[in-house]
Design a protein around this nucleic acid. Structure first.
Lengths: 145, 145
DNA sequence: ATGAAACTGAGACTCAGTTTTATATCTGCA
DNA sequence: TGCAGATATAAAACTGAGTCTCAGTTTCAT
């Protein structure tokens, strides 16, 4: 297994990722943190290493905001299939994590009827949460019935 | 109804969109076309007008490539709810249009059990088509059983 | 014809990410 | 331990998509 050299920079990046397993981290956030720690790491290094970690399956990359930059999250289960979907509310920006096993039904349907294997680590479902839906009246114009 | 002023630029943009209803157009593509027609339109004008059309529901905006620019498509049914999902193959880049009504089941499940109203004009399901899945072996590491 | 409101577009700017390149670091081997 | 060569780093320049500004232009109701 070629895991590359061990360097100060990589250690710092990985530490920050593992210490924030539950969060989705942006590259800016990592840079800010490292600068704050007085151990800045060049941004090309961060991007390069993140790419490698994503390739290795140790970290997952998400695009949670349409047209915005990527976020990264340490993946505890590099060899497991995560049963985990994301719902992103376009009203309040809230990210909802869904662990419901109905989602495997969806995957199966897509596979059987459309010959498509969904990648749930990349897919984000956009829409509105309850509060925003009530407040804004939904994205769907057919709201009056 | 305030539909704004009628201008040469807006007419050109809308014509191009309606003449390519079946396609997802990037802003670059529009600019190239307009330049080719010897009737260039400034990019701020294009972005501004597209935003307005999207707001009005006359055009839909998609982010089909992770981390890439937006695409626009004229929406024939501004007042209807489109029963239309997109699947994007991360292998070959192919975009698959799915008109299957199983998807309304998905929407209903999300609404009932997770209080979330999916916006199918924004959501894109990422994964692999049949051919790429066979060729590349799927995104899921649990492939050997 | 006029003027207020609306629209346009060149160009500067931002933000996220990539590329380049000179310099520094790592690790295996003698 | 020292050294060679592979590998990694970081500053800076660059790219691409989109935003913002503002002086000048166009539209349209009167």
């Amino acid at each position: 297994m070629e895991s590359g050299y061990k360097t100060r920079q990589r250690e710092l990046i990985l530490d920050f990722l593992t210490a924030n397993k539950e969060r989705h981290l942006s590259v800016d956030e990592m840079m800010d943190y490292l600068r704050g720690q007085k151990s800045p790491v060049g941004k090309s290094t961060i991007y390069r290493y993140l790419d490698r970690l994503v390739e290795q399956g140790r970290v997952r990359k998400y695009f949670l905001e349409e047209g915005k930059g990527a976020c990264f999250q340490y993946a505890d289960d590099p060899d497991g299939c995560s049963r985990h979907f994301h719902l992103k509310c376009t009203g309040c920006g809230q990210l909802i994590h869904v662990e419901c096993n109905y989602l495997s039904d969806v995957e199966q349907h897509m596979f059987k009827h459309h010959q498509f294997t969904i990648d749930n680590t990349k897919t984000v479902l956009y829409g509105q949460c309850e509060a925003c839906s009530a407040r804004l009246g939904g994205d769907c114009p057919c709201k009056d019935d």
